[in-house]
């Protein structure tokens, strides 16, 4: 009969701890992909959410730049088409995020930010360009109007002399003649 000799309580403790450690190690090895994937998914989710927030701010900023260009009278139809593309991409990103497709959402957001950034800088350029030509057009309109008014006033004075003369002539023509009877 085999005799099991236990030399002390320390041996039992060491055995149990090492077995427990081994079991934990094996569990950890098998479970780590789950934890890692959950953790990565959480990181993906947070990254996608913050990227969407950034893209939203970028589209809004581009929209405000386009509004600024529109206010000075620029033709913004081309910019609106591109801004609509960016807005559509942002909607796609939001939908993908809602469905848990964070990688897709991040992809949409990347293109969206790129497009809206380009729209914003083009809108600023267009605004400056339009403002310059607009100021020149306004000065031209002002000068043409002033010249027109001066011409009308001057011609008015000259014309008044002629009208007055015609009036007197007609009045004299209408004067009854005195004939001898």
């Amino acid at each position: 009969m085999r005799e099991c000799v236990i030399n002390g309580s320390d041996d039992v403790g060491m055995m149990s701890v090492s077995r427990l450690f081994f079991v934990f190690f094996v569990l950890l090895v098998f479970a780590s992909p789950i934890f890692v994937s959950v953790g990565l998914a959480e990181i993906d989710k947070n990254a996608a959410a913050s990227a969407i927030d950034g893209a939203e701010a970028s589209v809004v900023s581009a929209y405000e730049a386009v509004l600024g260009a529109e206010e000075v009278g620029a033709n913004v139809s081309g910019l609106l088409v591109r801004l609509n593309d960016a807005a559509e991409l942002l909607a796609e990103a939001n939908i993908a995020y809602g469905l848990g497709q964070f990688d897709e959402a991040a992809g949409f957001v990347g293109v969206c930010s790129e497009v809206s950034g380009a729209v914003k800088s083009d809108a600023f350029e267009l605004r400056v360009e339009t403002q310059g030509s607009r100021v020149w057009e306004l000065w031209l309109a002002l000068i043409v109007s002033l010249v027109g008014v001066v011409v009308v006033v001057f011609a008015g004075f000259l014309g008044w002399g002629y009208v007055k003369k015609r009036y007197v002539e007609r009045a004299l023509e209408m004067k009854p003649e005195v004939s001898e009877g």
């Binding site: 306004l138 309109a141 002002l142 043409v144 109007s145 027109g148 008014v149 009308v152 006033v153 008015g156 014309g159 008044w160 009208v163 007055k164 009036y167």
Partner: peptide
């Protein structure tokens, strides 16, 4: 003649308004 003067003045003023209206 005073009425003619007023009418003439009004016509000139209207013409001025038409000229500056686009501005």
């Amino acid at each position: 003649i005073d009425d003619v003067k007023v009418l003439y003045g009004l016509a000139c003023f209207s013409l001025c308004l038409i000229i500056v209206s686009p501005t």
